[in-house]
Design a protein around this nucleic acid. Structure first.
Lengths: 201, 201
DNA sequence: GTCTATATGGAGATAGAC
DNA sequence: GTCTATCTCCATATAGAC
C-alpha cells in the first residue's frame, strides 16, 4: 500500500476516535512511524487530509448508487442501498465531524453543493421509479418534501449519532436510523410498499 | 457590561464568522483590546467559552418554552415557538458548529443528553395537548416518530444550513426550515390544523 | 477580583539535505 | 520520496501589579 493510502487510513482511524480538532498531524506520523515532514509532503495542510477522505467516501457512494441503478427498482432494494450508504458514512464519520467547522476552508475546494445536487436528482429519479412499480404513491408536493427529508437526513444523521448515540455500536445506530427512515417512507407507501417496510420497523 | 459578557459576545461573533477551530483566543482578546491572560482568567480553556455559550443558549430556550407553556396550547403558537427557537439557534450557530468536534471534551462537563431528554418530554406533552385541542390527530407510533423527527430536526438543521445554505440570509434560511417542519406536521394535522399550517407552507 | 506580562510546550507548516 | 532541522503561531499556565 502506498504511503499516501496508509496516511489516509490512519488519519481516518484517528479522526474517528478523537475528531480532527484533537488529532495532530504529528500523532498521525508517529503512529505510522514516518516523519511529520513526510506527511506534509503528501498532504500539505491538515485540511487536505479531510478533502481526500471526503473524495474517497464520495467515490464509494457513487459505486453504490451505480450498483442500485444497474438492477430493478424496488423499495426493498432502495432501503438496502440506504443502509449500505449509512455504513459507508459511518466508516467515514471522522471526516464528517470536521466538515461543519472547516466549511470555510473546504468550501472553496470541495464543493459539497455539487454532490448535494447530484444526490437530489438521483432521489427524484428513484422515487419516480418506485411510484412506477407501485411501492410508493405521492403527489408532487409529497415528493418534493420526501427529497428534502432524505437529503436532510443523509446529511445530518451521522452528526446526531456521534453527539447523542456515541455509546451505541454501529449496528444499533444504523438500525435506529433505518427505522426512522422507514417510518417516513410509511407515510407515502402503498400496501405493497408497506410489506417491504416491515423488515425495518 | 462585564468583561465576562463582553468576551462571550465577541467569541460568539467570531465563532459565527470563522468557526471555533479557526478562531484563536488571542484573536478574541485582540478584538476586545484586552490581554490573552485576562481572557484566560475568565475562561481557562477555549472549551469553557463554548460551554458558557451553550448554557446561555439553553437559558434563552428555557425561557421561550416557559412562555409557550404559560399560554393556551395551539399549533399556531407552537410553530411560532419553533420559529423563535430556530432564531435563537441561528444566533448561537458558532457554538453548535464546534459541538460535534468537541463532544469528547464537552461530553463530561455539559451533558447534552439531559437537555435532549427534557426536550423530548416537552415535545410529548405539547403534542398530546395539540391533539386535545383538535389541531393534530395521531396514534402512538406516529407520536413517537414525530418526537424523533422534531428532536432530530432541532439538533441538526443549523449544521445543514451552515454547510449548504451559508449564502442565504437568516430570514430565508428560517423560512426554508419552517416550511420543512410544517410539511411534516401536515402528515398528522386535522383539517383545523391544516389551516394554521398554511401560513408556513 | 481584575488585569498585564511573560514563560512553556505543542501545533501546523517549510527548507533543504539525501 | 523521505528525512532532519527549524520557523512561526497558538493555547494555556503562572507570577505578580493594581
Amino acid at each position: 500500500m502506498s504511503t499516501r493510502e496508509r496516511i489516509l487510513d490512519k488519519a481516518l482511524d484517528l479522526f474517528n476516535q478523537s475528531g480532527m480538532y484533537k488529532t495532530g498531524v504529528r500523532e498521525i506520523a508517529r503512529s505510522l512511524e514516518i516523519s511529520p515532514g513526510n506527511l506534509s509532503y503528501h498532504f500539505a495542510r491538515k485540511e487536505d487530509l479531510l478533502i481526500a477522505l471526503l473524495e474517497r467516501y464520495g467515490e464509494t457512494n457513487d459505486a453504490l448508487y451505480a450498483a442500485y441503478f444497474d438492477g430493478e427498482p424496488g423499495l426493498g432494494r432502495y432501503l438496502e442501498l440506504i443502509s449500505t450508504l449509512l455504513e459507508n458514512a459511518y466508516s467515514h464519520r471522522g471526516a464528517f465531524l470536521g466538515l461543519d467547522e472547516l466549511r470555510a476552508v473546504i468550501g472553496a475546494e470541495y464543493d459539497y453543493r455539487v454532490v448535494e445536487e447530484k444526490r437530489r436528482s438521483f432521489l427524484d429519479h428513484i422515487l419516480t421509479k418506485l411510484e412506477g412499480v407501485g411501492d410508493l404513491n405521492f403527489d408532487e408536493m409529497d415528493k418534493a418534501f420526501m427529497i428534502d427529508f432524505i437529503a436532510f437526513f443523509q446529511r445530518c444523521w451521522i452528526m446526531e449519532a456521534m453527539i447523542s448515540y456515541a455509546h451505541l455500536d454501529k449496528t444499533q445506530i444504523i438500525s435506529r436510523y433505518m427505522r426512522f427512515v422507514a417510518m417516513q417512507f410509511a407515510q407515502i407507501a402503498t400496501l405493497k410498499g408497506q410489506r417491504v417496510l416491515g423488515r425495518w420497523l
